[in-house]
Design a protein around this nucleic acid. Structure first.
Lengths: 217, 217
DNA sequence: CCTCACTGATTGAGCGCTCGTTCATAATAG
DNA sequence: CTATTATGAACGAGCGCTCAATCAGTGAGG
């Protein structure tokens, strides 16, 4: 049984907060260990002992090791989404919102480098039916950028040369953040985070400005 | 002992091609299995039997399971580099070369989707001192784009607004290809490969054209 | 042409160990 | 005392890797 298919929690009492508390402890312990050693090389015993209880107890709150991985992925995505959302103010223009959101997003990615790598590495180890849940979480983050781009298009502060540009650029932005984490060994040699944000933002905004920039023939 | 530190091949005969043949067989078998089940869930016995020999023989040609992963990563990168290089003609302008190279690169990424994902997932499982070898292979591919951009800057067919734009854009291009593979579930809903190539190429070339496109204030 | 010792390549049963998971038992709370 | 939660020894399947035994090819001696 998988965690995201909330079904058979053994007792009623368990539903009054203890399950959630314990699962939070499990996730916290597991995130650290998975980042450090990867999912496969981390043992359930290690997770339990870092969460300060025994394997027996661990298995009261999950059904399998893979459940832990699912909880971890869920946690990371929801954490990222929450933090980026804070930078979105409905009062701003689309263009300003985009600038702020990109800035916040890239800083969140920088702070959560290891978490992002973790998701890239271990998503494939999830049981088949959990993978689509995790992909949907990823899609929600891209969706936030799509929404902002749409707003900018509607209020006239952002121009699009191609009608399907919104989807593509939203994905491009989402990937910029990941790129900063999985190419950090290269990129940090050449750029500080602030420089990276400034340059990439300028590339994006340049594309979304009102030129009809046609190059030489 | 690691494979990339060529040292103690037991006999002379082994060096006359048999080692290379066997290793090619090992890599071929391992690539398939790693793509299908991942590195950790693939057993050495499976690799041996798919390569049509026994575990004993397998261990005559490698020192550890991780050696196989190293050989696989090396193979994938060299295969990609080789194929992209074919699209680079020294006679063309920088701009034309860039167009051709992006086209070829994205098509190679499309063909080698699973291989690219494999590298993202399993690089972390390499022994620490092998990781840097694999990163260097990745850097060589980005380096090809840097060279092309430099050529275009020198022959005047490509314009750069920022002096460090070459490095950044080269990385951006390299990541475009990977993005097509690890976001295929989203992107293939919206774009065909040809559309994706066309749109992304147009974004890149637009940036490298001779406008000084400054948007609204 | 046969024999047989020699060599390097191949085999796969088996070793030692780890890990995910379970469950009888103990501790604790109400 | 009862109900709930926690424990960790025990289980058994599976793994990477080894190595004594075997096979197949070669060529010198008769």
């Amino acid at each position: 049984m998988l965690v995201h298919q909330q079904k058979d929690i053994p007792t009623l009492i368990k539903d009054t907060g203890l399950v959630e508390t314990r699962r939070r402890q499990i996730v916290q312990a597991a995130v650290d260990l998975f980042i450090q050693k990867g999912f496969h090389k981390t043992t359930t015993r290690e997770i339990a002992s870092r969460a300060n209880f025994s394997i027996g107890t661990l298995y009261e709150y999950i059904q399998s090791k893979e459940d832990i991985l699912y909880l971890v992925c869920e946690f990371i995505h929801s954490e990222m989404e929450k933090q980026v959302k804070e930078a979105i103010k409905p009062a701003d223009t689309g263009r300003d919102t985009l600038k702020n959101a990109i800035d916040r997003y890239l800083r969140v990615c920088d702070r959560m480098q290891d978490h992002i790598l973790l998701i890239y590495r271990e998503t494939a180890s999830l049981p088949g039916d959990s993978i689509s849940y995790v992909l949907k979480n990823e899609a929600r983050i891209t969706g936030m950028f799509e929404d902002i781009l749409t707003r900018g298009k509607d209020d006239g502060t952002l121009k699009l040369r191609h009608h399907r540009g919104i989807t593509l650029i939203a994905h491009n932005i989402a990937v910029l953040g990941h790129m900063w984490t999985f190419r950090r060994w290269f990129l940090k040699k050449a750029f500080t985070l602030d420089e990276y944000i400034e340059l990439q933002t300028s590339l994006i905004l340049n594309e979304l400005s009102s030129h009809n920039g046609a190059g030489p023939p």
